[in-house]
Computed example of a mutant assay.
Amino acid sequence: MRNLNKNRRSLMMAAASAGLGLGGFPMVSSAQSFPISGKPIRIVLPVPPSILDTTLRLMFDSVSAELGTNLIIDNKPGASTIIAAEDVKRSAPDGHTLLYTFVVTHTQNPHLYSKLPYDPFRDFIPVTQLVRSATVLTAHPKAPFNNIKELVAYAKANKGKVAFGSYGNGTTSHLNGEILQRSANIELIHVPYKGSSEAVKDLIGGVVPMIFDGTQSAVVNIKAGLVKGIGTATDRRIAVLPNLPTISEQGVPGIDIVGWQGLFAPAGTNPAVVERIAAAFQKAVRQKAVTSFIEEAGSEVSGTTPAEFSAIVRKDYDRWGQVIKATGLKFD
């Protein structure tokens, strides 16, 4: 045992002298050593190119100026955000790889998958929540229902024949559909897609009659007449769609957990670097052009500190855990 401990200490000292962590990654010794010269910050998104990319790119000039390096987006969609999360988990904790994701990754997946390849708390550091958002139940203009009461009646008259699309298994878009079925005592067919773009495309094309869509695309498509709003999955009406009642208002409770979008860094990233990145994005998200873009799409600007975001993640993890346990959903 003494020899093993001695060898372990020797290895740790050798790694430290070489500037390596136990995982073999370079350690960021201080905020002054960040950014690494000539190395951009790669932001991994768990969905195909979408309005999320646009939101981030509006902040890039400001963030780049603050941090002194370029930023790039790397879209890695699929598997309910797991592919993107695992990519970032395995990346060097040097501040140059970040995950920009939604509530699903850290607050829903852990309750849906028994063998998740990452731990939401051990493997990541919350950096900042940038956007507070929600989902809106939208339908094709020709769908034979215009509100929750009509939808429930139609679904009961056509048991097991009415479908709803989602961004993918285990996403908020999917979970809200499951809660709707249980709360309204109806049976729907779930059609999962590989991200929001494909789901919205098929909704507009009439392939699926309805989806729980994010406010950013739902608002745009409702105003353009490409889809119609059935109800908001929020605790109160959203300012940009003041005449659209919440689903709870229409008699189906429980679909009212506010969503968000935020940045995470791999575990082991220097806290000073995390704070510096957070500060740069907090400043960027509060620019008038960015704020207007986010609010016009029906979402709210946030811009939390790492500590505030950590508390939000933990709270939502507990709340979604209760919801998912009640539905009995498991995907493995």
Rank of each mutant, 00 (worst) to 15 (best):
N3G: 02
K6H: 04
N7Y: 13
M13H: 10
A15S: 02
G21C: 12
L22Q: 10
V28G: 14
I36M: 11
V44C: 05
P46T: 00
I51Q: 08
T54V: 11
S64K: 07
A65L: 13
E66I: 11
N70M: 12
N75K: 08
N75P: 08
K76W: 01
K76F: 08
S80R: 00
I82D: 05
S91C: 10
D94C: 05
H96L: 02
T101M: 05
F102M: 10
V103M: 07
V104C: 09
T107G: 02
S133V: 12
K142W: 00
N147F: 02
E150C: 04
A153F: 03
V162P: 02
G168N: 01
G168E: 01
H174T: 01
L175Y: 04
L180A: 06
N185I: 00
I186F: 03
K194V: 08
I211T: 09
T234N: 11
T234V: 01
N243E: 14
I247Y: 09
V258S: 15
W260S: 03
A267Y: 11
V273R: 11
E275S: 12
I277F: 12
A278L: 07
F281D: 00
Q282G: 14
R286H: 15
I294Q: 05
E295M: 09
S302N: 06
A311R: 14
Y317E: 07
I324M: 10
K325Q: 14
L329V: 15
